[in-house]
């Protein structure tokens, strides 16, 4: 999933900003709960499929307009339930990271586990406009707005999270740990 080479490293990411204001519920604004249930019933619950419904309740054309590597810049991201289909929908739409004023704790955790970086930066909506070109460096905690020249700092992500994100999330990393014999095989 990741396009960064070495395990445990993430190059700065570059893309354009898609700004969404207000409260973004995982089950409605980000991606409808019923849509997710419907895809699951049809056996079509994949990143690619659910990515087609990302943010459509706010902007029906978002999945067609967003380009791979762009950023969602949101106000309050991931309100409501701990449903992680919202994270998969964002990844499936090709979004490289979420930058937001605040994120709900379950959304934050689920995103990291899914391999989607979430950066919390109070005041980001004053510093970024729709379409701005941004560069985000997770390891050094730096956001550069290339369009405006503004630079913002945030707390760098700890190494274990960088490692998880660079691996493409919890599952690929867990598989690597199992393959390396660092997690015991308890079933004969």
């Amino acid at each position: 999933m990741t396009e960064n080479g070495k395990l445990g490293q993430m190059k700065p990411m570059r893309g354009n900003a898609w700004v969404f204001r207000g409260v973004l519920d995982v089950d409605w604004e980000i991606c409808g709960y019923r849509t997710y249930q419907g895809l699951q019933e049809k056996g079509m619950y994949t990143a690619e499929e659910i990515g087609k419904y990302c943010m459509v309740n706010l902007d029906p054309d978002f999945p067609k307009k967003v380009r791979k590597g762009d950023f969602i810049v949101g106000e309050f991201m991931g309100f409501g339930h701990d449903h992680d289909h919202a994270c998969l929908s964002i990844l499936g739409a090709g979004v490289a990271a979420v930058l937001c004023d605040t994120s709900a704790p379950c959304f934050f955790r689920n995103s990291i586990e899914r391999g989607l970086p979430v950066v919390e930066l109070v005041g980001i909506l004053d510093a970024v406009k729709q379409g701005d070109e941004l560069e985000v460096d997770l390891e050094n905690g730096r956001l550069s707005n290339i369009s405006s020249g503004v630079e913002l700092k945030f707390e760098p992500m700890p190494p274990f999270i960088i490692k998880k994100l660079a691996a493409g999330g919890m599952l690929p990393l867990l598989k690597a740990e199992v393959d390396a014999g660092r997690i015991p095989k308890r079933i004969k």
Partner: peptide, 29 residues
């Protein structure tokens, strides 16, 4: 494992939450 309302058990004086998507790692380790 799953359920954002796991916080209900906080009424017992525990730090109660859900693993949600991170549950696989917890189950294994």
């Amino acid at each position: 494992a799953v359920n954002g309302h796991s916080s209900g058990s906080g009424a017992l004086g525990a730090f109660a939450t859900t693993l949600s998507y991170g549950r696989g790692e917890y189950f294994m380790t």
